[in-house]
Design a protein around this nucleic acid. Structure first.
Lengths: 337, 337
DNA sequence: ATTTAAAGGTTAAGCGCTAAACTAACAGTA
DNA sequence: TACTGTTAGTTTAGCGCTTAACCTTTAAAT
């Protein structure tokens, strides 16, 4: 195994000089020496030892990616999480960082990981507000929270504009003539993202004089998996003509169950989703949904994080990305009555 | 930041003793001392520094998870990869290891990562045989290859029984009366998994006196995305009555495109997939497919890897897992003519 | 009474790298 | 001439942990 020491010996210089070449410390080494050392490194197949580097610098090239787990479900069975983490991974590698992917339900061991690995920074995804107190101590390194709204002093934030997303859904559905609406959340008691989407949805309905009743706001997707529960929703007196789900996955499952109950989408009931994942195109009918640009979000998150790693004095930042309506065939235009 | 030295001082013992307690070196420390030190560790919130540990041991607690990338596509947009890596991640954490998730198209920088991080082992997924020569040097640590068939001396292997999977598909479709069949691969020129599925498919058709023509074996999913190409397949003289795809994702896309062309599944054409991912349930019609147990596979892979990390002298192992037919509604029974 | 072994430690070297502090040679300048 | 600054390095002291080798004390075996 070839080390920095070996390179230094072969080049007839000190280890510091080699280190400076590797880390691109300009002005400390002559052009000529740089070239000579680089050649030797290349020819000998030298690879710096990350552990030694982390130890000496008190900071590794690792970024913790911390994902809110929900129960025992495989984290990447949620296609949004999968796609987002895939994009983050690519973005991190492109910037010379390594992702440490960590999922957690209770944030108990997360601090130990962050400290143990001397991570350079952390990205949180979808963290539930109720864990806030366990998380505060986790922001000892530059941090970007995503897909959550609570504020931690010094922590940065990237999200999508969920309020206006909800509003767009409301305006679109109401604009198509729908007046009896329902809202199915992913996990509204836990996720403040869902709460913002609902807020926007209600806001958007107001100009149309439409109010959501309490029974029309379902806090979890349990209903879409259970025919009895779903029956209760769609066979009521004031049954909804359109249902807005805060995730494509929930919308897809809803359409599946409705279909199994011989309720046609969009003929009998219209359905809208959120995210515009690839699955939205293969459902029957293709799903009308609100698109968020996951690649763009990942890029923004990584850029922001690296900026804050390089300059620890930077004031905290908050950014919301827009969403776009993608019209497919799961919403029907109602005739004026 | 509290270090092992601090703990030693507080406990009035040497660093070695604390280290022995942490690493569970039995017989070197008295029960009493163990308890005392453990208490101090707990109360002080001490977390061992992984970099220092890796450096001293010349081996980290990191396992490289190396995924075959296909073009520039987000690796986790492939739901199989997502689910598999999610399961591996969970399994690794449960065993005290950390996954380093790496995707690559050309395996160029992979060796540098393995060496740089002193990984304890590596798991490869879906590696294309043409990269074999670049990969040989990567097996300097205990390694498990998954979803590929080529042999590298000393490397372990876990996969699903693709030949019998293909055979089961053939027997099922033929048993349902289908005689004109087509096969759509994920990437048959690259993946030896696809080749085995095709081999099994052909083998399974033999007893029925059915042969696949060259035009009925499509090497990539390009056809399922392109209406013109698909038209050429399904409007031929000997057009297939059933199509077997080597991935659910391809099958789902195929059904979508057929649907858009007003060709009904399974009335006009039957479709089968492979994997049984969650998406197989939400397609219309629900997809008949071959189930592989991804959680079980991940568990087996991690167990095998850890066994080989603990005992480097172990002879190489190879295991194939079975698949199971999951009958849904995408295959129609043909009347005998 | 002497030897041996086990139990329960300690000491010290070193893993591979970085970074602060230092040095030597030289050029420009007041 | 003496001073200052720049360039291109070197020296040295760690970072936090593990591990091989060594050292006592006590108890059992001869």
């Amino acid at each position: 195994m070839v080390t920095l020491k070996d390179i230094a010996k072969k080049a007839g210089v000190s280890m510091t000089t080699v280190s400076n070449v590797i880390n691109g410390n300009q002005g400390r080494v002559s052009e000529e020496t740089v070239e000579r050392i680089k050649t030797i490194i290349r020819e000998s197949g030298y690879v710096p030892n990350q552990a030694a580097r982390s130890l000496a610098q008190r900071e590794s090239r690792i970024i913790a990616v911390i994902i809110q787990a929900v129960g025992k479900e495989n984290i990447f069975r949620n296609p949004y999480t999968a796609e987002y983490v895939g994009a983050l991974t690519a973005e991190l590698y492109q910037n010379g960082y390594y992702p440490l992917i960590r999922y957690t339900d209770d944030y108990r061991d997360v601090e130990a990981d962050l400290r143990g690995w001397n991570v350079a920074g952390a990205i949180f995804s979808g963290t539930f507000p109720r864990h806030l107190k366990n998380i505060k101590s986790l922001t000892m390194v530059p941090t970007v929270f995503t897909d959550c709204y609570f504020r931690i002093p010094g922590a940065n934030h990237v999200g999508v504009d969920d309020v206006s997303g909800g509003q767009m859904a409301a305006e679109y559905l109401a604009g198509m003539g729908h007046r009896r609406l329902a809202f199915i959340a992913n996990s509204i008691d836990e996720s403040d993202v869902d709460q913002h989407r609902l807020e926007g949805f209600r806001e958007g309905l107001k100009p149309f004089g439409v109010c959501l009743t309490d029974e029309s706001v379902l806090p979890t997707p349990a209903t879409v998996y259970d025919r009895e529960l779903l029956k209760a929703l769609v066979e009521r007196e004031d049954r909804p003509s359109a249902i807005f789900c805060t995730a494509d996955r929930v919308a897809a499952q809803l359409m599946k169950t409705l279909n199994a109950m011989n309720i046609s989408v969009p003929e009998d009931i219209s359905v809208m989703g959120f995210d515009d994942l690839p699955m939205a195109e293969i459902t029957t009918p293709p799903l009308t949904t609100l698109r968020q640009d996951i690649e763009q979000k990942a890029q923004l998150v990584v850029e922001m994080l690296i900026r804050h790693i390089r300059n620890k004095e930077l004031p905290e930042e908050r950014t919301l990305l827009g969403v776009k309506l993608v019209e497919r065939q799961s919403v029907k235009r109602l005739m004026e009555e």
